[in-house]
Structures are given as structure tokens and as C-alpha cells.
């Protein structure tokens, strides 16, 4: 990315404000996904838009230099630095999603069978719904985040 034209102060400030909001919304969508609109996929896509905003406004290296406090790896090399970590997120998400299905089989139910439990009389929170579908959603979330960020970082670098 050539830096002869920096994004305006407005863009940078708005990004700083909006990114946390996007992430919170994404998490909300992820948590309610099993019985309300939302889910792992859309939460993942939303999370990636937050990252995309940071990439566009602050540049490709910002994440690594400022947030992770390290020197970014050399580009144009296959799977360097952060891209490798995105790949790891992708793989572990896939493992979690597949594992959540296999777990049901271990308990003697068909693949991907889900269950739900309600925790009542919790302090402060009251009633809490714990759905096993959330684990699958979490896996999907990681797959989407990992895959899309890999594409963004790789294609963005070119």
C-alpha cells in the first residue's frame, strides 16, 4: 500500500469508534444464532468487516506492529506471519465444528445432534440458555474468520 495519501482524520476516528461496536454486534449475533437470526457465519463475516476496516484505514501492517507489537513478516512469501495464524484459526474452527458433531456420536446420538440446557436462578443474570449448537457455531465462526482474513491479507498484499 502506498502511503502518499493518508486517510483523513474523520475516517481514522470513525474506524476507532466503529470497530469495537462491530465486534460486539458480531459476538451478539454469534451467541443468539441458534434460535434467532444470526449464527457463526454472519458473525464471522461481520468480524472480518471490522478487520477489513482496520486494514483499509490503517494499512496492512498495523495489526502486527501496533496491536501484536512485532515486526511484520516479509510479504509475497507463502504463508508468512499473520497469514499462518489465520490458517490456524481456520483449521481449528473446522476441527471444533466437526468435533461438535462427533461428540454427539460418542454419546450415542446421530452426527450433529444438538441439545440445550437451561440454567436457572443464576445470580444477576437470572436464566441462561446453554445450547450445544453454540459450539458448532463457534467452529463455523472461526472457519469464516480464518478463511476470509487469509484472503484479505494475501490478496491485499498483492
Amino acid at each position: 500500500m502506498t502511503l502518499d495519501r493518508k486517510p483523513t482524520v474523520i475516517a481514522r476516528t470513525v474506524t476507532r469508534l466503529v470497530v469495537p461496536m462491530i465486534l460486539v454486534t458480531a459476538i451478539a449475533l454469534l451467541l443468539q444464532g441458534h434460535n434467532l437470526p444470526g449464527g457463526g457465519f454472519i458473525a464471522g463475516v461481520l468480524t472480518v468487516t471490522a478487520f477489513a476496516l482496520v486494514y483499509i484505514i490503517y494499512g496492512l501492517d498495523y495489526l502486527e506492529t501496533e496491536l501484536l507489537d512485532r515486526t511484520p513478516a516479509v510479504r509475497y512469501e507463502t504463508e508468512s506471519g499473520i497469514v499462518r495464524e489465520y490458517g490456524r484459526v481456520f483449521a481449528s474452527g473446522l476441527a471444533v465444528a466437526a468435533g461438535s458433531g462427533v461428540a454427539a456420536m460418542v454419546l450415542g446420538y446421530p452426527f450433529l445432534t444438538q441439545a440445550v440446557a437451561f440454567l436457572e436462578h443464576l445470580p444477576v443474570y437470572g436464566e441462561l440458555e446453554v445450547a450445544s449448537a453454540l459450539v458448532f457455531d463457534l467452529g463455523v465462526y472461526a472457519v469464516v474468520v480464518g478463511a476470509l482474513l487469509t484472503i484479505l491479507a494475501e490478496v491485499g498484499a498483492e
Binding site: F90, A91, A98, V102, M105, G108, Y109, P110
Partner: peptide, 22 residues
């Protein structure tokens, strides 16, 4: 139920292998 798990076995094996090789 457990005897019919064999139906999904080919798919699961391929899926698990894909994840493991990844």
C-alpha cells in the same frame, strides 16, 4: 442408532482426515 453410524463413516473419515492433514 449406533449400528447405522456406519452410513456416515466414509464422510466422517474424509472430513477428519482433511482436518488432520490441514
Amino acid at each position: 442408532v449406533s449400528t447405522t453410524h456406519v452410513v456416515i463413516a466414509p464422510m466422517l473419515v474424509a472430513l477428519v482426515t482433511a482436518v488432520a492433514t490441514l
